Amino acid sequence: MDDWSVPFRTTIRMPEPGVAREQFRGVMRMFPSAVSVVTALDARAVPRGLTCSAVTSLSMDPPTMLVCVNQANGSLSAIRGSGGFVVNLLRAGSEAVSDVFASASADKFGALAWRPSPGSGLPWLAEDALAFVDCRLIADVAAGSHAILVGLVTHGDLTSATEDGPMVYWGQQYGCWHANHLGPDVAT
Rank of each mutant, 00 (worst) to 15 (best):
R13I: 13
S94E: 03
Q172H: 09
A131S: 14
G74I: 03
V19Y: 02
N70V: 07
S94H: 05
L158I: 11
P17Q: 06
V86W: 09
W124L: 15
F8C: 09
T56M: 15
A111D: 13
W124F: 13
D61I: 07
I138Y: 00
D107W: 10
Y169K: 07
S82A: 09
K108P: 03
A187T: 12
A142I: 11
H146I: 04
P63A: 04
A161K: 11
L66T: 03
G49V: 06
M30Q: 12
L182V: 09
F31Q: 07
A45M: 12
M14I: 13
V35N: 06
D3I: 04
E127G: 11
T162L: 12
Q23Y: 06
R9D: 02
M14E: 15
R136F: 00
Q71L: 14
G81Y: 00
L125G: 03
P62M: 04
V186C: 05
G84H: 02
D42K: 09
G144C: 00
S103H: 04
T159K: 13
V55M: 02
E127H: 15
G18S: 15
W4R: 10
S5P: 13
V69E: 00
S36W: 08
F31E: 00
M1S: 14
Q172E: 13
M30P: 05
R136L: 01
F101E: 02
G93N: 07
N70G: 12
A40C: 01
G81F: 01
A20E: 13
Y169A: 06
A104Q: 11
C52V: 11
E16R: 06
G121I: 07
S98C: 07
A143Q: 08
G121F: 03
V6Q: 13
M14Q: 14
N88V: 03
V86N: 05
F24Q: 09
I148C: 09
A179W: 10
S145Q: 11
M1P: 14
S77R: 10
W4D: 09
V67W: 04
D128M: 14
N88P: 00
E127F: 10
G121Q: 04
R91C: 07
A187W: 12
T162P: 15
G151D: 06
P116E: 00
L58S: 03
V37F: 01
V100L: 11
S117Q: 10
A179I: 14
W124R: 12
A45Y: 13
P63N: 00
D185E: 06
P17L: 08
I148V: 14
I79L: 00
P123Q: 01
C52A: 08
G165A: 00
Q71K: 12
A34H: 05
Q71V: 12
A40R: 04
S53V: 10
L158T: 11
C68I: 08
P62R: 02
S36N: 15
Q23V: 15
L90F: 04
